[in-house]
Design a protein around this nucleic acid. Structure first.
Length: 155
DNA sequence: GCCAACGTTGGC
DNA sequence: GCCAACGTTGGC
């Protein structure tokens, strides 16, 4: 089992949106970065857990946990001309952007970006690396344990 | 294959 | 809204 951190703009999909969807699953649409896509397509496996991170908002940070629950399949938004994520260079014959579904696991105590930056235990966390813009990053088992146990106060 | 120009991300 | 940092594009 691997661990991840996945960024979403809460105006678009928040942890509450996910929790309130009928099946509590959502296709992780809109990734348009090759490295993030490759993490999602190639490295992720069903059953992996991910921090659900709110970005591009007043208070960025981790708001909950979700679980990878599908194999990769094409991101439909790339084919829709009026969609903000439309990619004219992609085609249904040879899709460029792929995604997986994630399932709601839990809301957690909100762990802010500032709080993570302040923790020496997280000094090497990929999210916090200088200039990082990846919307999907790996999280080490040690980082996952520290955040869930010490910052969220879970078992 | 280089690299300048441009567009995007995302915290502040 | 600003802007640093990064990724992508496209001419050469």
């Amino acid at each position: 089992m691997q661990f991840w951190l996945m960024k979403s703009e809460p105006d678009e999909v928040s942890i509450d949106h996910l929790a309130n969807l009928p099946a509590q699953t959502v296709p992780w649409f809109g990734v348009r970065n090759y490295q993030a896509r490759n993490f999602m397509c190639d490295a992720m496996q069903i059953g992996d857990l991910a921090f659900f991170y709110h970005s591009g908002c007043a208070e960025p940070g981790i708001a909950g946990i979700c679980e990878v629950c599908s194999e990769p399949y094409p991101d439909e938004t790339q084919f829709i001309a009026v969609n903000p994520y439309f990619d004219p260079k992609s085609s249904p014959d040879k899709p460029r952007w792929w995604l997986r579904d994630v399932r709601f696991v839990s809301k957690t105590r909100f762990v802010s970006l500032a709080e993570m930056r302040a923790a020496p235990e997280l000094a090497n966390m990929r999210l916090l690396a200088r200039g990082n813009r990846l919307s999907i990053t790996p999280v080490s088992a040690e980082e996952w344990q520290f955040i869930t146990q010490h910052l969220m106060g879970q078992q």
